[in-house]
Structure formats: structure tokens, C-alpha cells
Write a protein that binds this DNA or RNA. Structure first.
Lengths: 222, 222
DNA sequence: CGGCATCCGGGAAGATACTG
DNA sequence: CAGTATCTTCCCGGATGCCG
């Protein structure tokens, strides 16, 4: 019950007017950017975040959510009855951090040490589609795909040379993919055989979709 | 003198195949991205880096440079005689991290808590030009400006709707600005009077140049 | 002086257990 | 399920000192 005065004062600063340095003060602490990533496709509950970020302990998650809220990146929200559960969501400005996450992901994919076989959260998988989509390869393709990762479902739409991904029911799509995120990544980025996935609907559409993505070449150490 | 086996193994990982998570393992540690920023306009010595990043201690800088080199982001290089000094430089791939730094800076500039009056390194100032340059405002302008920050000199060139900044002597430019980086930022981004700067050459060119930049509006907490 | 190793104090991260 | 309390470990930052 003692009064804590460590609201803002004690957080480590860089004392640098550069926007990059300030950005690091906002979302540069360990786990912060990954929490933002998990919120990028819609609000999530405390437990959802923990489940998506193995290794992140509850106390650190609490601290980060407090810090992000103080910075104006996220908001805590109570869903209306009868749900009445508390969720964490990005502010409009927080949502605009996606280019940072994309740029970091695109760059790091070229790292010689990147290990794509590690666990992958559903949201990561969807965002990687947005990041790695090659509009040139897609041309004027038009398709809608559903993805089922356990209880989470997403719809990915390709139209007019753009790709959108939303958390949504998979009604009326051309093909539904039911699998682990890691297996989808192995097929789309790693060239694994499509047979490892469970497809419902047009397999041809999925194979065409998979051809829109290609990992960039690894960087050399020069 | 005991053998330390903590070269790679023990660094905290995220265990996440997402490229963003891997990127954070590479340049997400405290100070790492700011060190990369300082190298973005050419190689620097250990002491240069310390001077540009007040608050960064020597031992942490050593650790970061080791980590960045192990990750393939930087290389240590010995300049040829007669200089023969050791410098740190980005690899080609490391230099490609600039979009991350730009995206972070552009986003954070809209933070309600951003304080643009803090100290600013010369490199930050130059990179902020690259980040905040508005090609639409520049139109078909064509100009070359020199900036002198103590012993460091830079040339900024605007041509064909693009801006480039290089570490270079200020020969033959339209106008040379001699000032502290903070003062330049106050004029270009904060609308401070041009009289606070020492100009040699065409003041009109500098004023036109300053009109190519505008800070984005602050974000609201919604 | 530049580059790095070493020691130390404080604080953040991580694991576990506990509470409403 | 949504956090809080506690404890341990490790990282960050400052100081000092060694060696070329």
C-alpha cells in the first residue's frame, strides 16, 4: 500500500533529441515492440498476450503495458457487457508503428543467423504476409484466404496489388488453411510441400498465393 | 583469466521465428540502434562514438560493438597507414538498417512527449534531414548546403526531388551553416529565427531549404 | 589517448508462488 | 483469468586500471 513515485521519473533516458532515440524510449524496452506487434491485428487480453509471447513473464507484461499506456501507445479498454472483459488495444498512433515493425522484420530476415523454425505466433504470421508481399508477383490477382490457427481465424485478401489481413471469420473465402503458423511459414517461405497443410477449398488458389512471397537473399559479412 | 563461455549462448533470446523478434536480438539492446545510427554516415572511432552518445559508458560500448560485429552488422577496420587507426563501420547489410531508424524517428516525432530541445548529434541532424525531407515541397529545387558542426562537416544536396547527405568538405556549396546541431534543428523544425545561425553564402538558399521540412502533428491518446 | 578488462552498486528481467 | 509479491539472476552504468 505504499505510494510508488516511480511513474515516469526513473525510466532510463537517452537524453537525445533524435526521434529515433525517443522512439527507443517509447517502444525500445525488451518485449515492448513484440507486444505492440501482437496488438496490431486487434485488441487482446492479458492472457492472450502471455500465450503469444512465451518467455514473457506476467510481471514484465504488466510493466510494459503500463509503460506503453503512459506513452500513449496503447489503451486499456473494457468491452461492453455481456463480455465485460478488459482488453488492451493500440491507439491510432500506436497502430502507425507498423512500418517500424515491418522494416525491422524485413531487414532481419536477411540476417545470416535468422532461424525460421522457431515458434511463430498467428499475428506474426499474418504481419509477415503484409511485410513480405510482393505486389509485382501478385499482378492483378484477386483472392480471399482463410487461416485457422486453433481458435484464432484470419482472412487475407489480395486485390488490386495489395494485401490485407484481418482477424475475421473465414466465411466465403476461396480456401481455408488449418495448420500451425510454423507449418504455413515453412510452405510459403521455406518451400515445404503443400501436403503438410490441411486445406479446404481451392488448393490452386493457395499455391498461387504462396508464389507471391519470397525471402530476400542472406546478407554477407562485408 | 578464466575462460568465459558466454560468447553467444547466454544472450537473451525471444525464441520467436518472427523477423521482428530476430531484429530485436540483433539491434534491440540498449544503445545498439543509436550506435548504428552514428555509423550511418561513415566509419567512426571508439572515441567518436562515445562523444556522440553521452551516457554510454566505455564498457557497454565495447560490448555492443562486439555484439554488432558478431551479428554481421558492423566490422572493425584498420585504416591504411599513415592513419593506421582502428575504426568501426557498417557492413552493407548493416547500412540497410536505415529504414528502421527512419521509421522509428518519424513515428516518435509525433509522440506527445518528444522533447526536441535535448542535445543532438551531428549525424542525427543529417539523418533527420533524410527522414523528414518532403519531396513534394522541394519540387525541382537544386541546391547544395554545407554544415559545420565543430570539426565535422557535411554536404547536403537536393536534386531531382531527392536529398542526400554525406560527410564531406564544404567546398563549392551555395551556403555554409556553422552552428550547433540543436540550433539548426530549432530553425528548421521549430521555426526559430534564422539569425541564430551563422551563414556564409546565400541566405535565400538556406531559407528555401528549411521550408522543405515540417514536423508532423502530435498524436492524440485515442 | 584508444581500446579493453575488472570490480561494484542498483535496477531490470525472469521464474515461481500466491491472491481476488 | 488477471494480475501481484517475492526472490534470484543478470544487465547496465560508473569508476578504475592496464597496455599499446
Amino acid at each position: 500500500m505504499k505510494l510508488e513515485k516511480i511513474t515516469e521519473q526513473s525510466r532510463r533516458r537517452y537524453d537525445d533529441a533524435c526521434g529515433t532515440a525517443h522512439g527507443l524510449e517509447l517502444i525500445g524496452e525488451r518485449w515492448a515492440m513484440l507486444i505492440v506487434r501482437e496488438l496490431m491485428l486487434g485488441p487482446r487480453r492479458f492472457g492472450d498476450l502471455r500465450a503469444s509471447l512465451p518467455g514473457l513473464s506476467a510481471n514484465v507484461l504488466t510493466q510494459r503495458l503500463e509503460g506503453l499506456e503512459a506513452a500513449g501507445v496503447t489503451v486499456r479498454r473494457k468491452l461492453p457487457p455481456p463480455a465485460s472483459v478488459q482488453v488492451y488495444d493500440l491507439t491510432d498512433w500506436g497502430r502507425e508503428a507498423e512500418p517500424i515493425i515491418s522494416a525491422l522484420g524485413r531487414w532481419a530476415a536477411r540476417s545470416p543467423d535468422h532461424d525460421p523454425t522457431l515458434p511463430l505466433s498467428p499475428v506474426s504470421m499474418m504481419l509477415s504476409f503484409r511485410t513480405m508481399f510482393d505486389a509485382g508477383k501478385a499482378g492483378d490477382a484477386r483472392m480471399r484466404l482463410g487461416f485457422r490457427f486453433g481458435a484464432e481465424t484470419f482472412v487475407v485478401e489480395v486485390a488490386d496489388g495489395a494485401l490485407t489481413a484481418r482477424r475475421e471469420e473465414t466465411d466465403g473465402v476461396d480456401v481455408v488453411v488449418t495448420a500451425e503458423p510454423e507449418a504455413v511459414a515453412a510452405v510459403v517461405y521455406g518451400g515445404a510441400p503443400v501436403e503438410t497443410l490441411s486445406l479446404t477449398g481451392s488448393r490452386a488458389v493457395f499455391e498461387r498465393f504462396a508464389s507471391f512471397f519470397e525471402l530476400p537473399p542472406k546478407a554477407a559479412r562485408v
